[in-house]
Design a protein around this nucleic acid. Structure first.
Lengths: 231, 231
DNA sequence: CCAAAAGTGTTCCAAGTACACCCATGA
DNA sequence: TCATGGGTGTACTTGGAACACTTTTGG
């Protein structure tokens, strides 16, 4: 350890739990590490916070650098937790990681950059714990729980779909994130009855196998009264 | 800035929002700073995390060092948020603070130690924003909101009272933290009806001005089903 | 006796659940 | 026409809010 004055020296990283839906499946954005430690293993995207850079700005920057995803597509990063147990990073430096969570709609395929050999969407159900580098399995779990809870209390789910969507698309989000089936009839009434949650788009209909659905866009509501509940 | 290898250097602190009830009032533990910067101003207790020390351990240590309060009395520290905007600490070093919240019952008067000129309980209603050093007013606000929300969903409130307590003492906790009056009748039914929340203590009664109340101790429940709601 | 706090009963209403049933389209 | 998913109606149940009322103490 090198001391500048009287206090111990730390490195600080921003680590990201970016979630999206791909073919009805909840997926997390991972990178395959191109450098030691844990070279070749999957990890959450992230990296060192720069001098004079705010923590949240570092998160957006790392997202762009490691995965090529435009930060403008993923507004609304939320701080999750900070992980700093000694030894969680095998490097000699003491590393403290500030983790962030985010949900995105129709995010593009990532392209690897900087320290990442590869960047990809991985369905969360396909992940065994030991596949991830560092303590990232734990961070991912915390992020998933935060996302599940966020759907209950806030209008977050609309971030998972496009700008215009049907009620069943929205229900698909809840079912994928919560991992359970919801009653279509009750879900319909619940979301359409919550003030400022959904705004009907004039006259539009969409096509599918059955009766066409109405199309909505997200309303100004941010918190849901009353909350949508999981079982 | 001094670099050890390729990454910027940070100092990491643990800052504490410790809440308790003193004469029906919600109070926060503050210290009067004895050293620059902000010497003479009130601040949340806290200090630098040591080398090879876990973040949570640093929080407990700082509590003991700065206020003389035995960490054994304040189990259950919960991580709040991490604050790291450049310039939030006027010192040349970049300082990132991991904040923690906790509720305690019947905590003793603090005694100042290390960097603190004074340590004291301050009713949160007596605080104007600009009285606190750094961005501690914001951290305190976030901590208060976390505590208020915690009372809704978890059995946290029992941490604010002694090992044995009456239903109206518990109601006093909710009223002080939420800053609103609750219906004694409905509160009674709610808490006594929540499984594993309260355990009656055999035959005991307490004395006051009216009819004596039954005495309970905290049960094993940690989450409340259904939650107790604020207005 | 009266005041005050503890505790119960009861009524009303908001909201979740389950499920029957109708609607509008494609094949 | 039937299958499929969209959407409404409705009956049941759970739990919160309001408040009347009874109980048990101190003064």
């Amino acid at each position: 350890m090198v001391y500048r004055s009287e206090f111990p020296v730390f490195a600080v990283t921003a680590d990201l739990v970016i979630l999206t839906l791909r073919e009805q499946q909840l997926c997390v954005l991972l990178v395959r590490r191109g450098v030691e430690p844990y070279a070749g293993m999957l990890a959450l995207p992230g990296g060192f916070v720069h001098e004079n850079e705010d923590l949240v700005d570092a998160a957006y920057r790392e997202l762009a650098e490691e995965t090529g995803i435009d930060p403008a597509l993923v507004t609304g990063l939320e701080q999750l937790q900070t992980y700093g147990t000694p030894g969680r990073d095998p490097r000699p430096e003491r590393v403290v990681s500030v983790a962030w969570v985010m949900l995105g709609a129709n995010l593009p395929d990532p392209v690897a950059g900087s320290d990442a050999a590869e960047a990809l969407w991985v369905p969360v159900t396909d992940l065994c714990e030991q596949e991830l580098a560092f303590d990232h399995a734990r961070i991912l779990n915390d992020g998933l729980e935060r996302a599940r809870s966020g759907l209950e209390h806030s209008a977050l789910a609309t971030a998972f779909v496009g700008p215009e969507f049907t009620v069943s698309e929205l229900r698909g989000v809840y079912e994928a994130v919560w991992g359970e089936r919801l009653d279509p009839a009750n879900f319909q009434r619940k979301v359409t009855g919550t003030k400022d949650f959904l705004i009907p788009v004039k006259g539009q209909l969409s096509l599918g196998r059955g009766r066409p659905a109405r199309v909505y866009r997200a309303g100004p509501a941010t918190v849901l009264h009353p909350p949508l509940r999981r079982a």
